Amino acid sequence: MVTVKMLKPYYIKTDNEYVRIVLAYQYFSVVINEKDYQFIPIEANEFRINRRTQKVENVEAKFAFQNGKDVVYLTLAKLITLPDFLQQLHSIAGSYYIRENQETNDKNNIESAVIIDELEKMNVLRLIDKALDERDEVAFNELLKHL
C-alpha cells in the first residue's frame, strides 16, 4: 500500500499552458508498506499540469524514492490513483489555473487598451489639426512628439 506522507513543491513555474511543480530532496515522501521513502531526482522531477483543463499531462514520468539502499520507482499514473496525492497536487496548483472568466477578462483588457490607444492617437491628430489652423508652431512640434 502506498500513501503520500509529504508533498511540497521546491518551486512552481508557470507559462501560458502549464503549471510545473518542481520537486527536490526532502520535499516529497511516500510510505510504502509502512516504510518511509524520500523522493530523489534521478528520473523525473516535476509535475506538469494543464492550466486550462487542470489535467496532469506527464503521466508517463517515473519518480524515484529511496529508503536506505532500496530505490522504488513510481509512475505519475500510479501516484494519481492515490486520492490524497491528487488532492494535495490540486491544492498546490489551484491558484495557477486559468478560469474561463479570467481568460475573458484578459481579452477584454487587451481590447480596451487597443481602443484607448487608437482614441489617444485620434485626439493627438485633432490637436495637430487645431495647431495648424491656429498657426501655433510650438504646440504643433510638441504634439508631433506624441505620434
Rank of each mutant, 00 (worst) to 15 (best):
T75W: 07
K8W: 11
Q54P: 01
R48I: 15
N16Y: 08
V19D: 00
E46Y: 15
V22T: 15
Y10W: 15
K78F: 11
T81D: 13
F85M: 03
P9Y: 13
K69T: 12
V31M: 14
E17S: 07
N58S: 02
I12H: 01
E57I: 15
F39K: 08
A24H: 09
V72H: 04
N45V: 07
I32F: 13
E43Y: 09
Q87D: 13
F28Q: 10
K55L: 10
Y18T: 00
E43D: 10
I12K: 00
A61C: 13
G68S: 06
Y11H: 14
L89F: 03
V71E: 05
N16E: 10
R20L: 12
N58R: 00
V31S: 15
V19H: 01
N33W: 13
G68L: 05
V19Q: 02
N45F: 09
Y37R: 02
Y11G: 10
N45M: 08
H90E: 05
D70F: 01
T14R: 07
P41K: 08
Y11K: 14
V30H: 07
T53F: 03
D36M: 08
P41H: 07
L74Y: 14
L7G: 06
T81V: 12
L89R: 04
Q26Y: 14
N67Q: 01
V30C: 03
E34C: 08
Y18A: 00
T53P: 02
L86M: 12
P83V: 00
I42Q: 10
H90T: 09
K8I: 11
D84P: 07
Y10H: 10
D84N: 09
R48G: 03
E46D: 14
I80H: 04
E60M: 15
Q88D: 13
E57K: 09
A24S: 12
V56Q: 02
F47V: 14
I40D: 11
V72L: 12
Y27H: 11
I49N: 02
D70V: 05
Q88A: 10
K5W: 08
E17C: 03
P9H: 14
L89K: 03
Y25C: 09
I21C: 01
P83L: 02
Q26E: 14
N50D: 00
F39H: 06
D84E: 13
I80W: 01
Y73I: 05
L86Y: 13
N58I: 15
I80Q: 06
R52F: 08
T14Q: 04
V22M: 15
F39Y: 13
L82Y: 03
N58P: 00
E60K: 11
P9L: 05
R52I: 10
Q54K: 01
R51F: 03
K8G: 07
Y10F: 15
Y18P: 00
V72N: 00
T14N: 08
R51C: 00
V4P: 01
G68Y: 02
K78P: 06
L23F: 12
V4Y: 03
F65W: 15
N50S: 04
Q54M: 05
Q38T: 11
K35W: 09
